[in-house]
Nucleic acid binder design. Structure first.
Length: 278
DNA sequence: CTCACATGTTAAG
DNA sequence: TTAACCTGTGAGC
């Protein structure tokens, strides 16, 4: 479930479990072994996320840089008496007093310096979860671009941390067709979208899931039978192809943009440039 | 059981 | 545009 909220939640879990503690760092699978040895036995200073990137800090200007990719997982277990044998391909294992964490399947797991971390941050757009984020930087890119807003939202250099679920749901909540060009949006529209992302993603960090359906559109409020979306959150359109829109009842549509699936309601999200796809 | 697909990104062609 | 990375899940047999 690695969109930005997952990484921020992980940073909090790792900090709570290990910050200020001496930890053992290893690579049961072996692929990170050489780097792990360089920080093994030192104090884990803390963990921080920027977009979908995670940085775990150690003394001597060293950071473990993690990117989960599509199916990476980082499981943090606390209140543990005994650390179990690794299951599967564990690239990175951190062990501290009463806690351990296993990283599997990550796209990136590497040791970098502060400068290396800064370079990653420098090529990322503002992250709605971070208090220091400047939405104007994203708006400047969007308002000047003829590219589809659906692509711009997923471009990590424009906005950091938004993935396919948040993209689909944000566009629905603001009634925008995914293919509408960025430069046709108004400033007020983007301001509303940014504010919405800040709230939605902060909620995602708290709950560990993505819920986007407003109270007035819940099944109870709409007089429909209860439902369970198969990825653990309540959503309007993501992966609901062929099912009725929770708001208007129209059939949810799907398409592909830059190799990623799009989902939208042809009734709620119609725009002047997208008739061909309605 | 086997297969396709997925909340992501990079590099090759 | 496609494959590759590498793991979990659900559908279908």
């Amino acid at each position: 479930m690695p969109e930005g909220h997952t990484l921020h939640r992980l940073a909090g879990e790792l900090s709570a479990a290990f910050a200020g503690r001496v930890v053992r760092v290893g690579s049961p699978q072996g692929r990170f072994a050489d780097s792990a040895a360089l920080v093994d036995g030192s104090v884990l200073e803390g963990a921080e996320a920027w977009g979908k990137h995670l940085f775990v800090g150690f003394p001597g200007d060293r950071f473990v840089h993690v990117h989960l990719g599509l199916y990476g997982t980082f499981d943090v277990r606390t209140g543990v008496d005994e650390v179990p044998e690794p299951v599967g391909q564990v690239r990175l294992r951190i062990v501290g007093p009463g806690a351990y964490a296993d990283l599997r399947g990550a796209t990136t797991c590497e040791l970098v310096t502060g400068a290396g971390r800064d370079a990653v941050v420098a090529r990322s757009g503002p992250d709605p979860i971070r208090p220091d984020a400047d939405p104007a930087l994203a708006w400047e890119r969007i308002r000047r671009s003829r590219a589809p807003i659906g692509g711009l939202l997923m471009d990590q250099a424009v906005l950091a941390g938004v993935g396919n679920v948040y993209r689909a749901e944000l566009l629905f909540r603001h009634r925008l067709h995914p293919l509408r060009p960025g430069n046709t949006l108004r400033a007020g529209q983007f301001a509303a979208m940014w504010g919405d992302l800040v709230a939605l993603m902060a909620a995602g960090v708290r709950t560990g899931r993505i819920d986007t359906v407003r109270p007035e559109h819940t099944p109870e409020a709409m007089g429909r039978p209860p439902r369970v979306d198969d990825h653990g959150g309540e959503v309007y359109v993501y992966r609901r192809t062929g099912q009725p829109c929770h708001v208007c009842g129209a059939t949810i549509r799907t398409g592909v943009l830059q190799g990623r699936n799009l989902f939208w309601c042809p009734q709620c999200q119609r725009t002047f440039r997208s008739r061909a796809l309605q």
